[in-house]
Structures are given as structure tokens and as C-alpha cells.
């Protein structure tokens, strides 16, 4: 299937269309909203489902050398992508060192909903993928935060007052963030209980999954549209361009990293999607503690209002095409 066919098929999927509906409704100032508690519940459901299914897959396949190599590649990419992003942002934009570090952290970390959208696209092509990629997603969440923190501290050494608290609070925030706990916890439960456990709760975590994903994407469209309406004035053209180009740079790096590894085409597409995605739940919360001077309007708008829609609509088909080169 050509790249154009993949893109067209992706653009008319219910998920992308519900996201577009939310985006259009917010931009048109509709009163359509999803309550905060519902949005949080939907996000937890998605983490639970995706974690559990990944764990059940690993229970079947066991821990392999490939899994460990891909995890290592993911950790290294998560750590170095913020450095590349930071250098690029400082070179092309007028962002302060702290803002550049905070923005870059989002691009080194991952977005689980972009990953889920990638899974739907991969399954839509009838491609199998390795279940352990959920574990890869979990280990890629946090190295970027540490990397960005080191970059920011190089630019602005912390005062004696805030250093101790930042370190302690950040370790707790990063390690025990709700999305990480839910994803890793569900993965471990899925791993422990295997396909039998999955069969027991499939009517809850498998069957309604796509409908709930559509509802969550509607919500993301609403939040992204609201962010674009309010936050666009904070994004200069170079920063906006970064939101599109950086995922492509990350995707290219992921493709190179996959060359010697031998993932399946579906697995490779998902690994590239993970690397190219930008966090919008775990990292923004961590940045409010670690780098509170950084402006949230910049990194939230860029991650959710620019990079997420780009990945959802155009990035994922492109990553599928890249994966066909390096997947086996």
C-alpha cells in the first residue's frame, strides 16, 4: 500500500475524525466539553487496557533478547532526543534555556495515546506486533525528563533552597506518576495472569476499547483546540516548525536504531511512533515541579496542539512506511 493510501485510510478512521470533531468544536467555541473526572477515567482505562494486553502477550512469548535490546534503544533515544531538541531550539528560536529544555523533554518522552493510535493503524493493516512494546513505552517515559533537567541545570544552576526538594519530589513524581503506575501495573498483572486472565476481562478491556478511544480522542481534540485558541500566541514560527520537524528527526533516529534489531514491521512502526511522539500527561506535570519557570503555554500547546495532531493524521502512516524498510 502506498504512503498516500495509508494516509488517506488513516485520515478517515473514526479515531482521527473524532479528534477532528473535538478540535473543530473547540475552535468554534462550542460548549461541548468532557468533565475532567471522565477524561482522567478514560485515560486510566486506556493505560489499563493497553498495559494488560501487552503483559498477556509477553506471558506467551517470554522475555527475549530482542525485547531487552529494544528497551535499551528506547532508553537511549529518550535520553538523547531532548539534547538534540534543545540544541535545535536554542539555535532557531528565542526560547530561554529553561523553556527549550522543558519543550525538549516532551519530545524525548512518549505519548501513550499516539502509541494506541499507532496500534490501531498497524492492526488495520493486518500486521502483528510484539506485545513487549508496552514495556518499551513505559521505560521511555522518564529518561527524557532527567535529560532535560540536566540541560536546564547547566544553563541555570539551582539555588540551595530548591535543590533538595526538587530532587525528592521529582523522583516521586516521575516514578509514581499515575499513568506510569497504571501502565506498568496493568502490564505486570497481564503478564502474571496471561491469556487466561485476558480472556476473563476481555469484555471490559478489549471489546469497548475502540469506542472509548474515540471518546478520549474527542476530548483530546477539545483540549488541543482550546490550547491552540489560547496558546498559539506563545508559539513563534520556528517553535511551531519544531513541533512538526522534531518528530520526523526522532522517527529517523528510531529507524536507524532499528536496523540491526529485527523487529516485525508492525513492531517497528510502533517503536518509531513511540520515539516520534511527544508526551502531554506525564512530562508536563513533571516539568511543573522540575522547571516551574518554563512556560506551560508553550510546551502544552506545542505537544498537544501541534505534534499530536500531526502524528495522528500524517505521522503514523509515514512511520508505517518507514517500518516497512527496517521491519522483518
Amino acid at each position: 500500500m502506498s504512503l498516500l493510501d495509508l494516509a488517506t485510510q488513516n485520515l478517515v478512521s473514526p479515531m482521527v475524525l473524532f479528534f477532528a470533531l473535538g478540535l473543530a468544536a473547540a475552535l468554534a467555541r462550542s460548549d461541548l466539553t468532557i468533565p475532567e473526572a471522565v477524561a482522567k477515567t478514560l485515560a486510566l482505562y486506556l493505560m489499563m487496557s493497553i498495559g494488560f494486553k501487552g503483559g498477556a502477550e509477553v506471558a506467551k512469548s517470554g522475555i527475549t533478547a530482542l525485547m531487552l535490546w529494544v528497551m535499551l534503544a528506547g532508553v537511549i533515544l529518550s535520553f538523547i532526543i531532548p539534547v538534540i531538541g534543545y540544541v535545535a531550539l536554542r539555535a532557531v528560536s528565542r526560547l530561554s534555556p529553561v523553556d527549550a529544555a522543558a519543550v525538549s523533554a516532551h519530545y524525548g518522552s512518549i505519548s501513550i495515546v499516539t502509541f494506541v493510535a499507532g496500534i490501531e493503524a498497524v492492526q488495520g493493516q493486518g500486521l502483528p506486533f510484539e506485545g513487549f512494546l508496552v514495556a518499551v513505552a513505559a521505560v521511555m517515559e522518564t529518561p527524557a525528563i532527567l535529560s532535560a533537567l540536566l540541560l536546564a541545570r547547566r544553563a541555570r544552576p539551582p539555588s540551595r533552597d530548591d535543590e533538595g526538594e526538587s530532587a525528592g519530589a521529582l523522583i516521586r513524581e516521575v516514578g509514581l506518576n499515575a499513568s506510569v503506575v497504571m501502565l506498568v501495573g496493568s502490564f505486570l498483572i497481564g503478564w502474571a495472569t496471561g491469556p487466561k486472565g485476558l480472556a476473563m476481562i476481555a469484555p471490559f478491556i478489549v471489546d469497548p476499547f475502540r469506542g472509548i478511544l474515540c471518546l478520549f480522542l474527542l476530548d483530546m481534540g477539545l483540549v488541543a483546540g482550546r490550547g491552540m485558541r489560547e496558546g498559539a500566541k506563545h508559539l513563534s514560527p520556528p517553535v511551531l516548525a519544531f513541533g512538526i520537524i522534531m518528530p520526523l528527526v526522532s522517527a529517523a533516529l528510531a529507524t536507524l536504531a532499528l536496523m540491526p534489531l529485527g523487529l516485525s514491521v508492525g513492531g517497528a512502526a510502533l517503536f518509531i511512533t513511540l520515539t516520534a511522539s511527544a508526551s502531554y500527561i506525564a512530562v508536563p506535570a513533571a516539568m511543573r515541579l522540575a522547571l516551574p519557570e518554563a512556560k506551560p503555554a508553550i510546551y502544552l500547546t506545542l505537544s498537544l496542539g501541534v505534534t499530536f495532531p500531526f502524528n495522528l493524521a500524517l505521522g503514523i502512516p509515514l512511520y508505517l512506511a518507514l517500518a516497512s524498510w527496517v521491519g522483518r
Binding site: T33, I34, P35, E36, A39, K40, L42, A43, S179, F216, D219, M220, L222, V223, R226, E230, G231, K233, H234, Y280, I281, A282, P284, A285, M287, R288, K295, P296, A297, L300
Partner: peptide, 16 residues
């Protein structure tokens, strides 16, 4: 000072 904000629809803690 950065404009309007709303907690509605937020799945994460940042911005709330």
C-alpha cells in the same frame, strides 16, 4: 496573565 484556562477535559495534572 497567560490568558484563560480551564480544567475541563484535562487528563493530566499540568494546567489544573
Amino acid at each position: 496573565s497567560d490568558g484563560t484556562w480551564s480544567a475541563e477535559g484535562l487528563a493530566g495534572d499540568a494546567g489544573r
